[in-house]
Design a protein around this nucleic acid. Structure first.
Ligand SMILES: [Mn+2]
Ligand SMILES: [Mn+2]
Ligand SMILES: [Mn+2]
Ligand SMILES: [Mn+2]
Lengths: 222, 222
DNA sequence: ATAATATATTTGGGATACCAAATATTTTTC
DNA sequence: GAAAAATATTTGGTATCCCAAATATATTAT
């Protein structure tokens, strides 16, 4: 018996949670399989196992939902992931765009006590290096009230809070154009034709695509 | 394909290294299977795979040896294990007898860079919390010149350096009788009959079995 | 409504890591 | 040098996680 069942299970739960919070529409088998880069047959089989364990529920319209237990587990993994990311950046001096994959491993270390001690050691950070909120030990998350930058208004200035995408290529691009959590961005122009926009960061003007703007989550600067 | 092959492999390599450094006699299939609590058939099968990968060698007398590559890998895992143990004790305030099992998980986190940064963060510790030396990034280990306490001489005082056993039950027992790396122990009496001995720790007299004394590694106090 | 398309499900397999039980092969012991 | 004991190896089988290809069932477009 492979004793790695737990880790595999955790990745499914986390994927379901991410998909749910990212998209409005129902998560179906194909969407989950696509997101996880797995065969639909594999995912279907696993959904049955997770349903047996009362971690997910398949609704009559075939959409897949986490149960309360499943969601709780997912959130606690995300908590671990984000705390480890803070550790890597604050203590081991990694850059914020270098830590995701390592946290992907560390999030599966099994010990509630360890996570709680880590949190204390890090002085109870509220956000991870990407600006995402860190759930508390009971699974409560303070949500950031943000909008994607592509919905920003011409002439207004916004503060970057976090990102809707975790891919390396995206974070590397952000680093290149000097955007990180906390960066102030002024929307100079919005081009209806392709959804792209012209923005100002510090003293530099920059043209960004709609795809990029959609994944930058901001708040109006106070 | 289970993507956990690497972790499984690492545990075999580490077990072989531990067995070799603990016992003088050759390590055979049964010894390894017993140590790892696995079926001999399982271990035999795995030895063939590891031999194919040039990580172990099965000699004509059926004894199993790590190759140079295999030993190097084993040592680097032990390096990770011990550095994480230092982190847990120094930074997260765990007790020295509580960290082994957590390190057993953390040692499989895959990233050379991470270990090296961790080592720097911990200020290049030479020993882990159990008194065992931490190999450097090239796999070099400074060996402790120690003797087991049961070979100590009556009347002499010794300093505890490390332990030949990592089991929880043993470490808990040591904690109970107040022995840890650095403790000074004076041998008061040796009983030939059962190999047990009477020792003094601080101002307390204590009777310990041969089995316990064998697993306490000491140096003559200067 | 029918055809086209998307989604869901079934079926048959593959890889890895494991085990129990039978059979060889050594090694010890007498 | 047998017999006994220990060790090694083979054989057949299980659990978990995964895939490709076929089939069934919805959904959407025309
Ligand atoms: Mn991340
Ligand atoms: Mn993960
Ligand atoms: Mn240890
Ligand atoms: Mn291990």
């Amino acid at each position: 018996m492979s004793h790695f069942t737990k880790q595999v299970e955790e990745n499914y739960l986390k994927a379901l949670f991410k998909l749910k919070s990212r998209e409005i529409k129902k998560v179906n088998n194909i969407a989950l399989a696509t997101y996880m880069e797995l065969n639909p047959a594999t995912v279907l089989e696993m959904m049955r196992k997770l349903a047996d364990k009362n971690l997910v529920q398949v609704l009559p319209d075939k959409s897949i939902q986490l149960t309360e237990t499943g969601e709780r587990k997912a959130i606690l993994i995300i908590r671990k992931h984000r705390l480890w990311e803070v550790f890597l950046v604050d203590k081991l001096k990694y850059k914020w765009n270098e830590v995701h994959d390592l946290a992907e491993q560390l999030e599966h270390i099994e010990s509630d006590d360890l996570v709680n001690r880590l949190e204390e050691f890090l002085k109870f950070p509220a956000f991870d290096p990407h600006g995402d909120p860190i759930p508390d030990k009971n699974g409560k998350i303070k949500l950031n009230a943000t909008i994607p930058l592509n919905l920003g208004k011409k002439g207004k200035t916004y503060t970057v809070k976090s990102f809707a995408e975790t891919e390396d290529a995206f974070l590397d691009y952000l680093t290149n154009i000097n955007i990180q959590p906390g960066t102030k961005i002024t929307v100079l122009d919005l081009y209806e034709y392709d959804g792209s926009s012209s923005v100002q960061i510090n003293n530099n003007k920059l043209h960004i695509s709609e795809k990029v703007a959609q994944n930058i989550l901001v708040q109006l600067k106070k």
